[in-house]
Design a protein around this nucleic acid. Structure first.
Lengths: 244, 244
DNA sequence: CCGCCACCTTTACACCGTAAAATACACCCG
DNA sequence: CGGGTGTATTTTACGGTGTAAAGGTGGCGG
């Protein structure tokens, strides 16, 4: 059960993965070089594979192939594919968590804004993997640690828990939904029949012109700032001074 | 290619599906009664099956079983499982579309509010199927017709296309994300380790208390009204009078 | 009566997640 | 040095999946 505990083996990642056919010249060179797996190596490769092939085509067997091992080897580290995907989610959230760690305990609104941007950034950098985030529950150690930090920041500013909860939920929902919409229109199937539809439904076409990629940023900012402004003006948030 | 056209067979749905072993007493009663499939019957059964078993366990073979036919029979009506799921999405959206059809051409804000509520209602009535909506692009005939009606309503009120697009995107993103969050926390896996996490991360626990199911409605309304209020006050929306 | 055609079944294939068992290797203890 | 122990990985196997391809079957218009 070493793998499931926190201990990582001393010699991790032997560099040139995937060769697997070479033989070590150490004594008793019977088998091909062992894959040298670990939690980290596996979930990073998993994310990379999802980024490349897409979620639907991701399989443990393919992952094993790029890892230079059999599919079942993965199961020694993760009990199931589901669990592995949870770990991938964690991996993604690390980037979001980084924006609040070590931040000065002022300006919770600014922190929330940065988190929102980082979250949407994930959708852009990992469009194929992002839907994982939207469906899964954040119930891991690291995401809890991240939230703890974020909420602690709010408390230090004197924001009531009720207000914190409310705005966190509203803002995170908005970001999640917006990014998902974005991905669906940008990376969805390039349906040629859509042009015909647009021709018959003129109002949809006219309004959709304002949802083109080049307006997405401004639309996102608009909605986000709308919510953050409400937070700034909410009773129970920030002592008294609030920029005008 | 009759099935792919608009014509539906005259005698649809013979009632007691799934028996399939009975024989008609009509002349030449060689084979068991034919399944009597149709686009409608299939996609309604598909939705019901997803509601019951969940998305991950939904398969064409199981669907065939409840339909009293072989899995491949479905492929005569829908070219792929993907296409069938798109049809299921359409089926779900019909309920949302219903709230704007035949509505008086005043009060676009009210219409948007009702659409938002109907959308969230879907998540509650079809929690297992709802994630389909969030990921897929709305590019079908019927959803376009729905949007056309919604946007036409806005135009009749003199709201600029830019404003319409902006608020539609913001509100729909919010609803989508909120509902997804809701489902993840409500119907997600009942992890027992979560209690331990909560004990160690006290701020998360305190704030999460305000995200309990009984506060969800009020939180949703808060965020929604926040956005609708901004719409009411936006330049380019509504002629001049706006309540107070 | 025949042949077409809508509808459905049969068969087949490649692939999937993963339980269970076998196997290989590093290491410690005698 | 020899064997046991435990960690890491492969092998084998099973039941399931989406769907291509081909084969039936029955009603209907000629």
């Amino acid at each position: 059960m070493t793998a499931r505990s926190k201990t990582t083996t001393t010699r991790t990642r032997t560099a040139p993965r995937k060769v697997a056919a070479v033989r070590t010249k150490t004594r008793t060179a019977r088998r091909a070089a062992p894959p040298g797996l670990s939690h980290d190596v596996i979930r990073i490769a998993a994310l990379a594979l999802i980024d490349e092939d897409g979620l639907a085509d991701f399989s443990t067997r393919k992952l094993g192939r790029v890892l230079g091992c059999e599919a079942m080897a993965i199961y020694w580290y993760y009990p199931s594919k589901e669990a592995l995907l949870d770990a991938v989610v964690d991996q993604l959230m690390m980037r979001v968590a980084a924006v609040v760690s070590g931040r000065a305990p002022i300006d919770w609104i600014g922190a929330l804004r940065d988190v929102a941007h980082a979250y949407r950034g994930l959708a852009h950098d990992h469009p194929k993997a992002f839907p994982l985030l939207a469906t899964r529950r954040f119930a891991s150690e690291s995401t809890y640690a991240f939230l703890e930090e974020l909420f602690e920041l709010a408390r230090r500013q004197g924001i009531e828990d009720r207000i914190t909860a409310r705005f966190y939920r509203v803002v995170s929902s908005y970001c999640s939904g917006f990014a998902l919409n974005e991905l669906a229109t940008l990376h969805g199937p390039k349906d040629p029949g859509i042009a015909a539809l647009r021709r018959r439904y003129t109002r949809v076409a006219a309004v959709s012109a304002w949802l083109e990629p080049r307006h997405l940023d401004e639309t996102f900012e608009f909605g986000l700032e709308l919510q953050l402004a409400a937070l700034a003006g909410a009773p129970g948030a920030a002592p008294m001074e609030q920029r005008r």
